[in-house]
Design a protein around this nucleic acid. Structure first.
Lengths: 78, 78
DNA sequence: GACTTTTGTAATGTTAACTTGACATATACT
DNA sequence: AGTATATGTCAAGTTAACATTACAAAAGTC
């Protein structure tokens, strides 16, 4: 899903690795979420929002993102 | 994690099944999240928040909940 | 009490969000 | 050019969030 992680992270002069260590996750996970490879868990979403001092919805742009239904995902569609 | 799903759901006179159908998930998933058996995915958290017209953080009470670190979960601890 | 609806829960299976390690690329500095 | 740092990505393994089916316990209704 679309997000503002890179924008806010660079605003704070942080690397992906630094952000990962801050919230207790791996650099690769931060990178994958930032580049929309996969969806964050709710705790990672919350932790990132906390780091940047805003709400989850301000960082992760649900409305601008397309949600695959589980049915679609199961059959590898869309 | 602690949440206000039951409270808000009953306020609207909805059953777990109705809420599940509304957001496109199963009754059991709604029940498990409501009774804190497991954490919601970020999309389910968002969809539930949308149904009740509030922010994710107003329904899922992160601060009152304890987050297991992945290390703790992996070794089955805490 | 009988019947229905709602909720809780267990079993089994699938999938994707993670972890770690490794390697390639890009950028920057000297 | 060489070295360090940041990012992107892949492979392999683990785990938990789901789906589905089924059944039991509660709660409400007659």
């Amino acid at each position: 899903m679309k997000n503002r992680i890179k924008e806010l992270r660079e605003q704070k002069g942080m690397t992906q690795e630094q952000l990962g260590r801050l919230i207790g996750t791996s650099r690769q996970a931060v990178n994958a979420i930032e580049t929309e490879k996969f969806e964050p868990s709710i705790w990672i979403a919350y932790d990132i929002a906390q780091v940047f001092g805003c709400a989850i919805e301000e960082i992760f742009l649900f409305e601008e993102s397309t949600k695959k239904s589980r049915a679609e995902r199961s059959r590898g569609g869309l």
